[in-house]
Amino acid sequence: MRLLIALLICVSSIQGLYAQCPEPNTLVDASGAKVCARMFEDSNYYYEQSCGGEYLDAYPGDDVPIIPWRWNNRISSLVVSRSCTLTVWSLARKEGSKRKFTAGIQPRLRDVGQGLFGNWNNDISAYYCVC
């Protein structure tokens, strides 16, 4: 009986792992338009508390070589919609390091390596999103 209870607790914990991050297949804006990717300003050591704060939506076909100044180097977590790819650059005008994110949830960009010692937390300055 104890094993069954422990197993149920584990399963419910795994299901809630990405509780605050939206599911990739549910990304739509307030008007119901499909969103290619949603980029969030907050992440957290605890995944269920990631994808918080304000967010920036990227729509299919968005090509942004210079991200709005308010968002430059502020993105800490992201979700890419199903059948979409988000390509990001560390510098404006699509320069610097480059990384492609496919469909899924990335609750902590701090965990995504960039070069030998860096990571992608607060380091996105340009993006291109396709579906």
Rank of each mutant, 00 (worst) to 15 (best):
M1G: 15
L4T: 13
L4K: 12
A6E: 06
I9H: 03
C10W: 06
C10F: 13
V11W: 01
S12H: 02
S13I: 03
S13H: 07
S13K: 09
I14A: 14
Y18Q: 10
C21W: 02
E23A: 14
V28A: 12
A30Q: 13
S31M: 10
G32P: 00
A33E: 09
A33C: 02
A33Y: 03
C36P: 01
A37T: 01
A37C: 03
A37E: 01
R38E: 02
R38M: 01
M39P: 01
S43I: 02
Y46H: 12
Y46D: 12
Y47M: 06
Y47V: 01
S50L: 00
G52L: 01
G52Y: 08
G53V: 03
D57G: 10
A58L: 04
A58T: 04
Y59W: 00
P60F: 04
P60I: 00
I66D: 15
W71Y: 06
W71N: 09
W71D: 05
N72I: 03
N73S: 13
I75C: 08
V79T: 05
V79C: 05
V80R: 11
S81A: 15
R82L: 06
S83L: 05
C84Y: 00
T85K: 15
L86G: 08
L86N: 10
L86P: 11
T87W: 00
T87F: 05
V88D: 08
S90L: 08
K98D: 01
R99L: 04
K100W: 02
A103G: 15
G104V: 06
I105D: 02
L109P: 04
L109G: 06
G113M: 12
G115K: 14
L116R: 15
F117M: 13
G118R: 14
N121G: 03
N122T: 06
D123C: 11
I124N: 00
I124L: 07
A126K: 14
A126H: 11
Y127W: 11
Y128D: 13
C129I: 04
C129E: 03
V130G: 08
